[in-house]
Write a protein that binds this DNA or RNA. Structure first.
Length: 873
RNA sequence: GCCGAAGUGGCGGAAUUGGUAGACGCGCUAGAUUCAGGAUCUAGUGGACAGUAUAUCCGUGGGAGUUCGAAUCUCCCCUUCGGCACCA
């Protein structure tokens, strides 16, 4: 009699048992070493999607695996609960963001519990809880006091129709997503975190993050964007003043034939004044300022052609349209065209070249960024492609100062700029110098003359955290007419986000219209004052939540130093690759700030990072608009949690994208059924097997082979999980072991009940299968484990260690190649001498066909792998 | 545009250090079982060639190169995806 694989009952029962036994609570005074595994917490959008399931399944495997290895595992879960979708829902469905958010959290928590994830739910929190954000407000004030917070103007997307700020994602083709009004740029006062104070440490820290993927570190390094160059002073011609430029190519200084300023450069208007170019400049800047900043960054024409169109037209296909082709394949429309090019205007003013004294015209160029360097560029058309195109367009002179080896560049015949290395020409005393040396020589010369100096520039900008929105952490500042801007007194925290705000499609930030909120008294002078109505970027909450998990019950302080220092840095952080730059950089920055404020000791938040790929269906990311969403609830109902987990882990390695396949899910389900039957149909024999170690050792050739496979599988699975989290290959190794066990039973028949040795070997194999698969499919393996007669949950089993003597093969297969092509193979015992293998290979009749009558040039032998006979000519 | 990835059978993927390309699974084909379907089991499954042999040739997005040997290293090109600072 065998039991049916009733996954629903099994999964519910074991989940209840685990909870009852409190297996997932991370104790504080444990003698076991700690291990902190964390998945990026979700935004409570309503329902979990497959991306969540994948993320949390991967984390759960790591958590369970580490527990089996004897670690005291901290594996928490919570909610990144502030954000725009709640406000959008409020406007659309007339439901308060708070209610909407909490309903979503309740629903999603149930979903996560149903997934059997091994969280310590005692530590759960939501960031919209005042008990969380009050500490963020404290950090803000402390950062303000430490000079890490400041206020300045910055540009935002503005919709005149809605009278509101728009996020980038609310701008569709340059228009407001709600009312279709053209989006303009507007200067707005806002709060900034001085992340640039930590630039150097953030950059250098990348070298120490050996547990992070190299590609993420590269992206972070590039984002910070360190470049060594020079700041050079160009005096104005004909009047007092100067313009400073930053360049990474001081070696090309003598090739500068004009200067380009950013349209935002503060000197622009002053320069063109009285030159007759005033009108033209104003028209240009007026035109330019209407293009939102985010579109300016993608303004290079594809084929380096200058398109002189007066209207800055941007054509963009409606966001990545998916079209269904007749054969039901989803294809992305290829026409994602942006046609626009750099443009500029002459200011009418000139600077003097610092070395030659020549007059150089000053232009305004739309590709020059105010945020980087000094907002002014010395243009060297011969050696910078953008300058080259600009010079061609406006008929400006081109002067070659770097001559590459073996070429003779001439301004008239050049088709593009030469940006590579070479020797200096036309550069006076610097001629004949290699350009790399000339960089130092020219910078040194300028420094001596007081005309410039070496400078390191970074691309990283300060972090603007002001949001003119309701559903976020209120910024704890007060505006007083007498005292200016004053922080809220720490004892008055938290500044509670009022729940009676009105949200509608029109208007300013809801808080600025809510007098009961903004009307206050100045903490300093006691006079009437106005509260800051901006809230913080939700990235702030996610920049320290991992620290709060270590002490979520702490009521007197944001963090309990002892507990934070015990757990941080997170041993293993897991989340989507889309967070490779912003979230991870902000979290690193915040950790360093909290360290310097004395709240914790860690320098970095995450010791090891695993970036998982996306879940795709029909080659595209799952989304409602594309209609290719697979609902986790339905899948779990039909197949059970273990099947879904198995499929997700098996279908691809975690760092790669995962293509959803309903048939693949069925395959995973089938595999679990196979294990179920294999064990339940042989339960009598398996449970009767002797547990005596001795009996395993004496065995027939066949049982020896199965034992060998068992121990090889233990080795392989441990390696795959430990070294690279490749659960897909770990699972396929277990599949091979199952296949071998099935083949064993087919070949020799089910052992008689008194064949103790055979049963013992089979039992060893099956128990290995269950333990190895447990972190991935915990419910079915726990059930089968107990069916095999074990009283306690498999969760408490230690991770197995392979017996290397058993795993080692007696013979090894050596490939024989002739001229690198596989021609034969020989089986030899381990450690056979090279000479013996060589003569075996040369005597092989299949090899003789190729070697007969020709001379052997040389023989290459790779021990234990192959032998390659290289023939003459 | 800039930065970062990826591209291997009909499909997902494997090949961990330059050393047997296609493990494992899906799908498909044939057979067994079954009233039938499903499920299960057995065998086969990159392509060409099916002159029969555990043959030969071709084959890891395209093109060149390094090497005894390249999916893996170098250079160029193509395609797809992620990020680009107010989505989280």
């Amino acid at each position: 009699m065998t039991a049916r694989y009733d996954f629903k009952t099994i999964e519910e029962r074991h989940q209840a048992d685990w909870t009852k036994e409190g297996l997932f609570a991370a104790g504080e005074d444990s003698s076991r070493p700690g291990y902190y595994v964390l998945e990026m917490f979700p935004y409570p959008s309503g329902r979990i999607h497959m991306g969540h399931v994948r993320n949390y399944t991967i984390g759960d495997v790591v958590a369970r695996y580490k527990r089996m290895q004897g670690y005291n595992v901290l594996h928490p879960m919570g909610w990144d609960a502030f954000g725009m979708p709640a406000e959008n829902a409020a406007i659309k469905h007339r439901i308060h963001p708070s209610i909407w958010t909490h309903e979503n959290i309740d629903y999603m928590r149930k979903q996560l519990r149903r997934l059997g994830l091994s969280y310590d739910w005692e530590r759960e929190f939501a960031t919209c809880d005042p008990e969380y954000y009050r500490w963020e407000q404290l950090f803000f004030i402390q950062m303000f006091e430490a000079g890490l917070v400041y206020r300045r103007k910055s540009k935002v997307n503005w919709c005149e129709g809605c009278q509101t700020v728009l996020a980038n994602e609310q701008v569709e083709d340059g228009r407001c997503w709600r009312c279709d009004t053209e989006v303009v740029e507007k200067e707005l006062d806002g709060w900034f975190f001085k992340i640039t104070d930590y630039t150097q440490e953030l950059l250098e820290g990348c070298d120490k993050l050996t547990g992070w993927p190299e590609k993420v570190l590269t992206m972070q390094r590039n984002w910070i964007g360190r470049s060594v160059g020079a700041e050079i002073i160009f005096p104005l011609a004909g009047k007092d003043g100067e313009i400073r430029v930053f360049t990474t190519r001081p070696d090309t200084l003598l090739g500068a034939t004009f200067m380009s300023l950013s349209p935002e450069h503060p000197m622009v208007l002053e320069l063109c004044m009285g030159t007759g170019q005033e009108e033209e400049v104003k028209t240009f800047i007026d035109h330019w300022s209407k293009i939102p900043a985010r579109e300016r960054q993608i303004t290079k024409s594809p084929n380096h052609q200058i398109i002189q169109s007066p209207n800055h037209q941007i054509t963009k296909s409606p966001n990545h349209q998916i079209t269904k082709s007749p054969n039901h394949q989803i294809t992305k429309s290829p026409n994602h065209q942006i046609t626009k090019s750099q443009k500029g205007v002459f200011t009418g003013a000139y600077v003097k070249h610092p070395l030659t004294g020549e007059s150089i015209p000053i232009y305004i160029a739309d590709f020059v960024l105010m945020e980087y360097g000094t907002g002014a560029v010395m243009a060297v058309p011969a050696h910078d492609q953008r300058d080259f195109e600009f010079a061609k367009e406006y008929k400006l002179p081109i002067k070659v100062v770097i001559q590459p080896e073996g070429k003779d560049l001439k301004p008239d015949t050049m088709k593009e700029a030469w940006e590579g290395p070479g020797t200096l020409v036309n550069s006076g005393s610097f001629d004949d110098m290699k350009n790399e040396r000339a960089k130092e020589a020219i910078t040194g010369h300028l420094e001596a003359q007081g005309l410039g100096n070496q400078k390191i520039s970074y691309r990283l900008r300060d972090w603007g955290i002001s949001r003119q929105r309701y559903w976020g952490t209120p910024i704890p500042m007060v505006h007083c007419d007498t005292c200016g801007i004053v922080p809220v007194r720490k004892q008055d925290l938290p500044v509670i986000l009022p729940l009676d705000a009105q949200l509608d499609e029109q208007g300013q930030s809801p808080l600025s219209g809510l007098e009961s909120f903004w009307s206050t008294t100045c903490p300093k002078c006691g006079g009437p004052a106005r509260r800051e109505s901006d809230t913080m970027d939700t990235f702030v909450e996610s920049s320290w939540y991992f620290a709060r998990y270590t002490c979520p019950d702490e009521t007197s302080a944001p963090l309990d130093r002892n507990r934070v220092d015990k757990w941080l840095p997170v041993n293993q952080y897991i989340g989507g690759i889309e967070h490779a730059i912003l979230h991870l950089l902000y979290a690193r920055f915040f950790t360093k700030v909290l360290r310097d404020l004395g709240w914790l000791s860690a320098d970095e938040p995450f010791a090891n990072l695993l970036t998982q790929g996306m879940v795709l269906k029909d080659g595209a990311k799952m989304s409602k608009s594309k209609g290719n969403v697979v609902d986790p609830d339905k899948m779990i109902h039909t197949f059970g949690v273990d099947t879904i987990r198995l499929f997700i882990l098996f279908a691809s390695p975690p760092e790669r994208d995962l293509e959803w396949s309903d048939q693949g899910v069925e395959g995973a389900h089938r595999f679990l059924h196979r294990i179920w039957r294999l064990i339940t149909e042989n339960l009598e024999g398996l449970t009767s097997a002797s547990t005596d170690k001795e009996i395993l050792v004496q065995g027939t050739k066949a049982t020896k082979a199965l034992r060998q496979k068992t121990h090889q599988t233990i080795l392989k699975v441990t390696e795959d999980i430990e070294q690279r989290f490749h659960f897909n290959t770990a699972i396929s190794a277990v599949m091979e072991l199952i296949n071998e066990a099935m083949a064993y039973l087919n070949r020799y028949g089910t052992p008689k009940i008194d064949q103790q040795g055979d049963w013992a070997v089979l039992r060893e194999a099956m128990e290995a299968v269950l333990i190895l698969l447990f972190p991935m499919v915990p419910h079915i393996t726990d059930e089968l484990w107990q069916l095999l007669g074990h009283q306690k949950t498999i969760s408490l089993e230690p991770w197995p260690v392979a017996d290397l003597d058993v795993a080692r093969a007696d013979t090894v297969n050596i490939v024989v190649q002739v001229n690198g092509k596989l021609r034969s193979q020989v089986d030899v015992t381990q450690n056979t001498d090279k000479e013996i293998i060589e003569s075996m290979a040369l005597d092989d009749p299949k090899i003789k066909r190729y070697t007969e009558g020709k001379g052997v040039h040389k023989i290459i032998y790779v021990p234990g792998r192959l032998i390659n006979i290289v023939m003459k000519h």
